[in-house]
Amino acid sequence: MNLISILPLLKFKVKEKSMIPLLKPGDEVIVWKLSKLKIRDVAVFRKDKKFYIKRISKIKDDSTSSRFRGASKYFLEGDNEKESIDSRKFGWIERKDIIGKVIYKF
């Protein structure tokens, strides 16, 4: 079991520019894993064994999930829309892949 899975708070350093002007490359943020997620939250999620940081722009109920009634899917986009590669390219993200919400920026 690694620290990502057991700690409620995590620290991330931002790389690349799709969250400019809010987050610049090199900025560090604290993520709280236990928050309820809502539209406009900036969240960290896992995809293809890497972590990404984007803003939640849409949330939908996942009616295809029979195991978890009311499970949601999240559409995340970069603030710097012209430059960002995000849900517009790789689609909706499941709740289990979202690490948490950014609660503090250094």
Binding site: F12, K13, S18, P25
Partner: peptide, 25 residues
């Protein structure tokens, strides 16, 4: 308190992935 907690936390990398050229370059 945040600074103290932060020091104890391991640092991970989160990509604000981007690719398309724009005036930010």
């Amino acid at each position: 308190i945040i600074s103290l907690i932060s020091k104890a936390l391991p640092l991970n990398i989160a990509y604000a992935h981007c690719d398309v050229p724009c005036s930010i370059y």
